[in-house]
């Protein structure tokens, strides 16, 4: 199917594409480079790209700041926790909508989607006040709850589009073979759905990891994940480029790696199946 292209043209496209790709990636690259410089080199003029004294001191310093690890763990717990909780709620829901569609199924799906369209500021005050009254402000539990709820529609939708692709006849075959509802779910549905569930998990960990409205507004110090922790560097007294870069690199590296693995799922997940 692929068209034959002359090598000259291919070389030209290669140069242009790499130039643009590196330009787009440059801020990240620059951050990573800076993280290996000393603070003086980080703001040196002219800036050095490769020929500087590579140092790991920023990383050791960031790690030694007692709170960095806490915030990192907060990010892990909040993003994983909200995703797993979301999956636990969404898997049965998506299962029933995909395999036992009722007349209302479409309406329910669309309605779930509509909750995702609700701008967070519309419910900021009540959530803030409720959290205050229930002692959930600046707790991981509180953030897990909120992030579960805001990502639940995406989780349900992604799972739904994956489950839809499992042929219904297979589940009927299991039923004919004497499998009860739970056996059907455990022995047939789950193994077939694992790839879809894994992609959903991946995308939602990413979304939750980077969520920066609720995490900024509902946490102070204890439960702050990396999004909020990094934001604290914006104050003038925190202006240490190299250390900021090291902290940033640590914060984005894990998710960058996960993200590269989930390119395809990203499209499906974020367009609610409208583009596959």
């Amino acid at each position: 199917m692929s068209r034959r292209v002359s090598n000259r043209r291919k070389a030209l496209v290669t140069v242009i594409a790499w130039a643009i790709g590196i330009a787009i990636f440059f801020p990240i690259l620059w951050t990573v480079l800076t993280s290996f410089k000393t603070e003086a080199e980080a703001i040196a003029s002219p800036p050095s790209f490769v020929f500087f004294d590579w140092t790991l001191e920023n990383y050791t310093e960031v790690n030694e700041r007692s709170d960095y690890f806490l915030h990192f763990m907060n990010s892990v717990i909040i993003s994983l926790g909200s995703t797993l909780l979301g999956l636990a709620i969404a898997i049965p829901a998506a299962w029933s909508m995909a395999f036992v569609p009722a007349k209302r199924t479409k309406d329910v799906l669309m309605w779930m989607l509509s909750t995702k369209m609700l701008p967070p500021v519309g419910v900021l005050i009540p959530i803030y006040l409720l959290f205050r009254d229930f002692g959930l402000l600046d707790t991981r539990t509180g953030l897990v709850i909120v992030l579960t709820l805001i990502n639940l529609p995406i989780i349900v939708w992604m799972l739904f589009t994956y489950f839809k692709e499992i042929p219904g006849e297979i589940l009927e075959a299991a039923r004919m073979d004497g499998a009860g509802l739970w056996e059907e779910v455990i022995h047939v549905l789950t193994p077939m759905a694992v790839p879809g569930i894994a992609s959903t998990l991946l995308l939602n960990v990413i979304l939750a990891w980077n969520e920066a409205f609720w995490t900024l507004n509902l946490t102070a110090a204890k439960a702050a994940p990396l999004t909020a922790f990094i934001a604290s560097y914006s104050s003038p007294e925190g202006l240490f480029y190299a250390k900021l870069s090291a902290a940033s690199t640590l914060a984005i590296a894990p998710i960058l790696v996960l993200g590269w693995f989930s390119q395809k799922q990203l499209v499906r997940g974020l367009t609610f199946g409208a583009v596959k």
């Binding site: 594409a17 790709g21 990636f25 801020p27 934001a231």
Partner: peptide
């Protein structure tokens, strides 16, 4: 278009999406 290193360039181009908003804003 076909070119050498398509997969890598693709990865480079997608990367900013995975950077948390506070980090990209500060950087």
């Amino acid at each position: 278009q076909p070119f050498w290193g398509q997969g890598i360039v693709r990865i480079l181009v997608i990367a900013p999406f995975f950077v948390m908003p506070t980090v990209s804003a500060l950087v």
